[in-house]
């Protein structure tokens, strides 16, 4: 009987969405053979979390208990704890979300176990001589089918590629605390300070993103997007061209090496739509492109397009929004 181990994350007594997605993928590896779906978690475990884990078919919960494992625990310490737990539960597969914390934790786990690690997976199945999996490349515009040959498979799961679905049969989610032996040296990369972003609506979670690219022509031209953003409760984004030209801070950059956004509406102004940018906005529910070039990739991929000069269109839109808000 095989055991699949998932490193889950939780905040405010709820499993992270990416962890629920990871549990859903992990369950495919335990079914139809009756296997164990066990989880490891850092931080205070609650009864609500137990219920949620049970609903996803979890058989056992290993809370990692050590004074060094708090909210600021560096990924090396989390990885070392999971490595030691692997010695006890002897899983065939260990998975986690390719999240801000999961990604470095699994890199450290891979380094500490010297096992191969497949990052950003969207599917996996057991085959005779290992596993076959699909993972994202180029920020998600390409899939790679790969074969993994390893003693234990380490996988991170790409966020928001799999719908999180509870199990048909809930699991007992029995609590089995685990206390690793951790050396003080593992905390060398622990944060010594935190700096919060200064106010405003975050680009990553804004319901509407008003983005500008090369066609904006100047830093000043973004003022109209700023004003629209404040009227609509959205955020201003930009392409790499706008960042490199010094018009906007990199914090505003949407794309493979910037921020990934998934707003209800993405307004792409003067952005041609290179792959680098497209992967950052392709998950928007609706895309409206404004461009002089009807053949620009951003226009041909958008749901709707406005052709012509954005310097004529944007002031008119601002006026229209103002008058509708006033009325």
């Amino acid at each position: 009987m095989s055991t699949v181990l998932v490193l889950v994350e939780h905040t405010d007594g709820e499993l992270a969405r990416t962890s629920r997605e990871t549990l859903t993928l992990a369950r495919n590896l335990t079914e139809p053979v009756e296997g164990h779906l066990e989880v490891a978690a850092v931080g205070t475990w609650s009864d609500e979390l137990r219920k949620e884990a049970a609903a996803f078919g979890v058989t056992a919960v290993h809370t990692l208990e050590h004074e060094l494992l708090d909210a600021d625990a560096p990924p090396a310490a989390v990885a070392e704890a999971v490595r030691q737990l692997m010695g006890v539960v002897t899983p065939s597969v260990v998975l986690g979300a390719a999240s801000e914390r999961g990604t470095p934790s699994f890199a450290h786990l891979a380094a500490r176990t010297d096992l191969p690690l497949a990052a950003n997976c969207t599917a996996v199945e057991t085959v005779d001589d290992g596993w076959e999996l699909t993972r994202l490349r180029w920020g998600g515009v390409l899939y790679e089918d790969a074969h993994l040959d390893a003693e234990v498979a380490l996988l991170t799961v790409a966020p928001h590629q799999i719908a999180a679905v509870p199990a048909t049969m809930p699991g007992p989610a029995e609590l089995e605390p685990f206390t690793p032996e951790l050396d003080e040296a593992l905390t060398v990369a622990r944060p010594v300070a935190r700096e919060a972003l200064s106010g405003g609506i975050s680009l990553a979670t804004a319901p509407v993103v008003l983005a500008g690219g090369r066609g904006m022509g100047s830093a000043e031209a973004f003022a109209v997007l700023e004003e629209l953003a404040s009227l609509l409760g959205g955020a201003v984004g930009c392409s790499r061209v706008a960042t490199n030209a010094g018009w906007r801070s990199h914090n505003d950059q949407v794309g493979q090496t910037g921020t990934r956004v998934a707003p209800d509406l993405y307004l792409a102004c003067g952005i041609s739509g290179a792959t680098q940018h497209w992967v950052g906005c392709m998950n928007a529910k609706r895309i409206v492109a404004v461009n002089t070039d009807a053949e620009a990739p951003m226009v041909t991929r958008a749901h709707e397009a406005v052709l012509g000069d954005l310097h004529e269109f944007l002031p008119a839109l601002l006026e229209e929004v103002r008058s509708r808000k006033g009325g």
Partner: peptide, 25 residues
């Protein structure tokens, strides 16, 4: 298929309609 809403300033009302449709206005 990309729906072309219009050209330049004349397209502003159509985009504002979309903003209303998705609940932003």
């Amino acid at each position: 298929e990309t729906t072309v809403l219009g050209t330049g300033a004349a397209a502003a009302p159509a985009v504002a309609d979309i903003l209303e449709e998705v609940g932003l206005l």
